[in-house]
Write a protein that binds this DNA or RNA. Structure first.
Lengths: 157, 157
DNA sequence: CTATATAGACAACCACGTTGTCGATCATAG
DNA sequence: CTATGATCGACAACGTGGTTGTCTATATAG
């Protein structure tokens, strides 16, 4: 019997797979008129969704402080992907909604992700890909994404 | 036939798998006497290896500037994981080598990664895990790791 | 000997995260 | 109706990681 791969290969491959997909997504997104979008922006836009949200709510949902979420929203607003409005029921809240451009980026992202998945299915076979997704589901938590990647990886515990 | 999972689930699961493994590694590393190590430190220590390197060489290897590599080495030196010496053949170069503590962290990391992989093998079965690793190898580049994760994910193109 | 390339140090800067503080607003208890 | 406490958003200060640009010292090629 052959020996197992070294244990450190598994996390490396998982991350490389993630990075390959995200890089290809953003390369294609840039070609389709969204060159300013960064990987984290996609997760934020996805978290805002069509219903809108607030900075504090977004921060809780993504596992960062409301200040951090607010800063990211400032950037996205400046890029024209979101706009802020008021909440008629609560004068404290400023509701953030996707602009048309924001929705467009989300629609295109979904389409591109499907294409990328199809590419993997062509390489691996649909059955193997489904097995991969299924296995990953079994070893990862069900809840959503944490947005604190830069700090998590590099900085402040 | 059942429908495919949405395309965006794949990158999410890949990243979550990575994050789960790295988080468990560092939780265990903290228990074993290395509470100050951050995820990126492990990749740097691994890249230094037992032969030693220089800041500029490390930067090239990890895909960041020599200045960025130098800053990270400063931090690691301050934490006692690496030490700098001179190169008798080239007075410009300062060779960075792992300290005993640095080697210890690497030995423990390797051991912990093996244990984590065993845990996945218990959950998924050794054959499915090997298939997962093999499939990932087919869709990811062969070369090593890029260290620019914080900036890649969040910032400056 | 001179021109070029490289190592490392230093500074200025930007992005993203943190905590702490503050005024405005809402919700609730008395 | 009013006092109290919680929450929202804004602002400031700070730490960390990355970038580019500049500088000196040292190798190396012509």
């Amino acid at each position: 019997m052959s020996t197992d791969p070294p244990g450190f290969e598994l996390p490396l491959r998982l991350f490389m797979g993630f990075r390959v997909l995200i890089d290809e997504l953003h390369a294609e997104l840039a070609r389709q008129g969204h060159p300013d979008l960064r990987p984290m922006h996609g997760f934020v836009l996805q978290a805002i969704g069509t219903r809108g949200t607030t900075a504090a709510e977004l921060g809780r949902h993504l596992g960062v402080s409301k200040q951090a979420a607010g800063k990211t929203l400032d950037a996205l607003e400046h890029l024209g992907y979101v706009e802020r409005g008021t909440d008629p029921n609560d004068a404290r809240r400023k509701i953030v909604r996707l602009t048309q451009r924001g929705v467009d980026s989300l629609v295109r992202s979904a389409r591109i992700f499907e294409d990328l998945r199809s590419g993997w299915a062509d390489t691996l076979g649909e059955d193997r890909l489904r097995a991969l997704e299924s296995d990953l589901r079994r070893v990862t938590p069900t809840d959503f994404f944490r947005l604190d990647v830069p700090g998590w990886f590099g900085g402040y515990q």
